[in-house]
Each structure stands twice: as C-alpha cells, then as structure tokens.
C-alpha cells in the first residue's frame, strides 16, 4: 500500500549540509503496525513527515497505492493529507480556542460526515463528557486522546504517530496504545515512532534508523 523508494533528505544547517535520511526504502502493507526506532536525530520524524506529505524528499519516491505523493497537484496532495493519513504528535497540537468537539470537527471531511460519529468516537475514548471543554481544561491524556480522535475522524488508511506517548504517564500511555491497537485491528495501518519498549511491543514490525540510514 505504501512504498518508500530510496528516499534521501538533506537539510541545510547554515552552510553545512545535514543528511537526515539517506537512501531509505520501506514497504508497508495494509494493517501493518510498524514501529520506527532509533536514537535521537536519526531521522524518525523526518521519515514520518515524508510519509505524511509534509516534506519534499531530495531524492526517491513515496508511493501511496502506486501514486507518487510528491508528484500530486496541490489539490490531490491536500486530499491525500486529509483522507489517507492522520497525524498524532507528541505535543498534541490542539487548537486552543476550539472545544474538544470542534478540534475534531475541523478535521472531518464532508464525505465522511455521519451524524453521531464524533460522539461515538468520543464515547469510546472516554471523552464524551468533555466534548465542550477547551484544551486548557484537559489532562494530558485527554488531550492526546482528542488528538487521536482528530487523526482518525476522516478514516485514514495510515495513522502516523510521532512519539504519541512521550508526554504521557504509563497509565495514559496504555489507554492510548490500546486505542491505536484497536484502530490497527480494525484494518488501519500504523506508523509509530517511539523510544519506549512498552510501546513498540504493540508493533508487528520494527525498523531501526541510525544517522538517517536504515539498519
């Protein structure tokens, strides 16, 4: 379903070139749960952003169902980001002036809109009573679950999670990972970046990056 062919990404740091990813190839099938591990600075987030259509690789391709994500026109690319992938970040990135419900609503696409769908997901994530609360009124676990619902509301094929439990206590981590695992078991594909073994245990495949290379 997702094929990454020999991608490289070079950042310019002042005058120096920094190779964040070098010649990385990878294949992900539907319903895979892939964990990406590696030391800090090894290029894990960069890989996830590449898959999410957020950064142009310097060489190589990212193919989703055979279509090159970086050869799409802007409309197709927006559609890809809306419908095919969903992001969960370590820092939640909820919009502070929108309620829990609105933060999710804004990510919902017209075509996927169904009455009660948001409520059902909120219910499942134990967020329904907090529906009209603002992010500042939530605990970190609640924030991350809101971000998770936001990521999957448009029923993406691939969930991209970049250290989603990085700011959570063990209990909340476990709740979130269970939800992610359920998403996976329902047929969703997961790409997860993590340092923690408790988290990577949920994965069915693990790849390791070191200095931008797959090892």
């Amino acid at each position: 379903m997702l094929k990454i062919n020999n991608v490289s990404k070079i950042y310019l740091k002042g005058k120096d070139k920094f190779t964040a990813l070098q010649d990385v190839s990878l294949e992900v099938e539907k319903s895979d749960f892939l964990a990406v591990v590696g030391p800090s600075g090894s290029g894990k987030s960069t890989l996830l952003h590449l898959v999410g259509g957020l950064i142009q690789p310097d060489s190589g391709q990212v193919l989703f169902r055979g279509n090159d994500v970086y050869k799409m026109n802007s409309k197709e690319a927006n559609r890809y980001r809306t419908k095919n992938v969903g992001f969960v970040f370590q820092q939640f990135h909820l919009i502070p002036y929108l309620t829990v419900y609105e933060n999710i609503k804004i990510a919902e696409t017209e075509s996927e809109r169904k009455n009660g769908k948001i409520e059902a997901l909120l219910e499942k994530c134990a967020l329904l009573p907090l529906k009209n609360k603002y992010p500042s009124e939530l605990s970190v676990g609640e924030k991350q679950r809101t971000a998770f619902v936001r990521a999957i509301i448009s029923e993406p094929e691939i969930l991209l999670a970049d250290e989603p439990t990085g700011n959570l206590d063990p209990e909340n981590s476990k709740i979130l990972m269970t939800l992610i695992k359920e998403f996976n078991e329902d047929g969703g594909t997961v790409l997860l970046v993590s340092h923690e073994p408790e988290t990577t245990n949920y994965a069915t495949k693990i790849i390791t990056l070191r200095s931008g290379k797959r090892v």
Partner: peptide, 13 residues
C-alpha cells in the same frame, strides 16, 4: 502550530 496542524490536516493554502 495551529496553522501547521491545519496544513497537516490537508487544509488548502
């Protein structure tokens, strides 16, 4: 951040 997340969500320019 909020603009970044809107872009990651696929909102257009």
């Amino acid at each position: 951040y909020e603009i970044g997340i809107l872009k990651a969500m696929g909102k257009s320019k």
